[in-house]
Structure formats: C-alpha cells, structure tokens
C-alpha cells in the first residue's frame, strides 16, 4: 500500500462525496416539492407524488441507474455519465426523504398552523415558514441516516461508468494484487466520512431549539 495508491483512493472518495452531497441536496429540494404536493389536498398533485415515491422506493437503485443511463439517450437526451448518476441518486433519495419528511409534516401540531392562518399567512408562507422548519427538525435524525445511506449507495453509480471510491478500489486491487489493504482502506475512508457526518449532524441537532411534537 503506497502513498500513491492511497492518494488515488482519496481522489475517488472526493467523487463519492461530491456526487453524494449534490444528490442529497437536489433530492431534498425534490422531497420538499413532493411534500408540498402531498399536503396540497388536491388529487392532481397527490397522485403523481405518490406514484413517484412508490416507484423510486420500489425499484432497486441499480436498476434505476441503468434505466436512466440507457433511457435518456433513447429519448434524445445525451448527458455525461456523472449527470446520469446524480439524477439517479437524487430521484431515489428524494423518494426516501419525502417519506421520512411525511412523518414530520404529519406531526406538526395543528395549532401551530392555525396560529399562522389567523395571522394572515397564505398556504405557501405557512408551508415554508412553519411546516418545513418544524418537520425538518422532527425528522432530522432520519434525514441524516438517509444521507449516510446515499453515501454508501453511491458505490452503485460505477455501473454508469463513474470511478468512485468502490470502483477505484476494485480497479486498483486487480491491477496491484493488493486487495486486502486496498479494500480495508476504502472501508476506512467510508467509515471516517460517515463518522464525520454523524458528528456534525449531532452538533447541529443539539444546537437546534426543541420542537417537541
């Protein structure tokens, strides 16, 4: 195990981290849209949101990625594989985040929404100023879990040709015949990243004001 090999792994880890963070952020934005649709009380918004969520939770991520990667060119959209990877991960995590958030939105006390109604908030203002921040705090640990899951699942994007941490480790191990130190290093890098996420998330969570449901 040389410095050079380790540097290559670390560079691939940056890919893993970058793709994951971008996907989690995009996925969160989509999850908020899905939540707004689910809370709208209107069938024309609820039905597609439900369909989206059940599809992306019901189909394996690997299949989703392959589908997106092969489908997009067929309908005339040519995107670099990294974009396909980010689309796949984002849509998948959006469905899970929306499902997590749903519990939080359901737990926002009705009285807090009524307090906004009587002070003249329109539904959009109530959603962004009251419902979202409270639902977010109530589901924060679940969302952090989901972030960690996505980071680990991001190893699957190698099927669309991205050389992220896991794929790099595989390639290096077959070219150097040093599988054990290389996979052990890759595992350690995942572990350290996830520890760091958990540590920061714990800090953030403790600093947030209490919003007991």
């Amino acid at each position: 195990m040389t410095i050079k090999l380790f540097t290559l792994l670390m560079q691939a880890a940056l890919y893993t981290l970058g793709i994951s963070i971008v996907s989690i952020v995009i996925g969160f934005a989509i999850a908020i849209l899905l939540s707004a649709a689910m809370l709208s009380g209107k069938g024309i918004y609820i039905a597609p949101a439900r369909l989206f969520i059940s599809f992306f939770r019901g189909v394996p991520l690997l299949v989703q990625l392959l589908l997106i990667y092969t489908l997009l060119p067929v309908i005339g959209i040519n995107v670099p594989s990294i974009v396909a990877a980010i689309i796949g991960l984002s849509l998948c995590t959006a469905a899970y985040q929306a499902e997590n958030l749903r519990g939080g939105f359901d737990a926002v006390p009705k009285g807090l929404v009524e307090a906004a109604d009587v002070t003249g908030f329109n539904p959009r203002q109530t959603f962004f100023r009251i419902r979202v921040p409270i639902a977010l705090r109530l589901t924060f640990p679940a969302l952090v879990n989901e972030a960690i899951m996505i980071l680990k699942s991001s190893s699957l994007v190698s099927v669309v040709g991205i050389i992220e941490l896991t794929k790099m480790a595989q390639d290096l191990s077959s070219s150097t015949y040093l599988p054990i130190p290389i996979f052990a290093s890759a595992g350690a890098i995942y572990l350290v990243i996830n520890w760091a996420i958990a540590l920061v998330a714990g800090r953030v969570e403790r600093s947030l004001p209490k919003v007991t449901a």
Binding site: P109, G111, L112, E114, A115, A116, I130, I134, V211, T212
Partner: peptide, 8 residues
C-alpha cells in the same frame, strides 16, 4: 389555550 407559539 395551548399558546401555539412556533417552537423554532
């Protein structure tokens, strides 16, 4: 009755 202050 329950105040309903926004906790965040």
């Amino acid at each position: 009755q329950q105040f309903n202050l926004w906790p965040h």
